[in-house]
């Protein structure tokens, strides 16, 4: 294997609950190749989401580093800020993580996490709205609009484009979430139990969608506690007591 797309080394994360520290990740290392479909399995509460958040630059590890295209995404451990405030927006590390979230990563969550005030189309476009500077929006709007419509067609929701999330079923909502995560052609798609909240039928459709995307070359990292779901992936890692193991 040539240089992996993303590499995590010795990730550790401890949650403080008052005086007690709960060490959820105790040194996780992994590598993700370009075009790979990786599943991470583990029991509920084992720290899968935590790990995914760290890979996706949503949280900050206590120790360890994640590199993307060989570039670290976290500051050296001594300079890390675990709760970035408003003013940290303008710090170098926070800025680079914001850029990754905007342009390189896509996220799909178990509970869809759509904005209820927005229509399907607007929810999908939101990623682009956030990622586009003010002045460019006018000139790019048409292109993004077309892209959003084709993605929504890809997930089979063209008829629902003007609907709001509360008018959709769970499976449909998750497909909107996938469309939102795909509109900016992310290099890695992170999916946190994307079928966890769905019945078998809709879950199956979501999985089909993901394997289809994988077939087209999309790199996917998926977290699940369900072995049947994990089978859709090329490779599965198991998270147990804070460390990763190959089967």
């Amino acid at each position: 294997m040539s240089n992996p797309l993303m590499e995590a080394v010795d990730l550790r994360k401890t949650y403080r609950m008052g005086r007690v520290g709960v060490e959820v990740l105790r040194g996780c290392s992994l590598a993700i190749g370009s075009g790979e479909f990786l599943a991470i399995m583990g029991k509920s509460g084992s720290g899968k989401s935590t790990l995914l958040h760290l890979l996706g630059a949503l949280d900050v590890p206590n120790q360890g580093q994640v590199t993307f295209h060989d570039k670290p995404i976290y500051a050296p451990p001594t300079q890390r800020r675990f709760r970035p405030g408003v003013l940290d927006t303008f710090s170098f590390w926070e800025q680079s993580r914001i850029r990754l979230r905007r342009h390189a990563f896509g996220f799909v969550f178990q509970f869809y996490h759509l904005l209820p005030e927005l229509t399907v189309l607007e929810n999908v476009l939101l990623t682009r709205m956030i990622g586009t500077p003010w002045l460019r929006w006018g000139s790019r709007r048409k292109k993004y609009d077309e892209r959003a419509r084709s993605i929504i067609e890809r997930v089979g929701l063209t008829a629902r484009i003007k609907h709001r999330p509360n008018e959709l079923s769970g499976g449909e909502r998750q497909r909107v979430a996938i469309a939102r995560a795909l509109i900016h052609d992310p290099q890695i798609l992170f999916a946190d139990e994307p079928t966890g909240n769905l019945d078998e039928d809709s879950g199956g459709r979501i999985l089909e969608l993901l394997t289809g995307l994988h077939g087209e070359g999309q790199t996917i990292v998926m977290v699940t506690h369900d072995a049947s779901v994990a089978r859709a992936a090329d490779r599965t890692l198991h998270l147990d007591r804070g460390v990763l193991a190959t089967n």
């Binding site: 408003v86 905007r102 342009h103 209820p116 956030i130």
Partner: peptide, 15 residues
């Protein structure tokens, strides 16, 4: 929750 979503897809704290 919405704030979390916006941040997860690239919204900055200042934004």
């Amino acid at each position: 929750r919405d704030i979390g979503i916006v941040k997860s897809i690239g919204g900055s704290s200042a934004g």
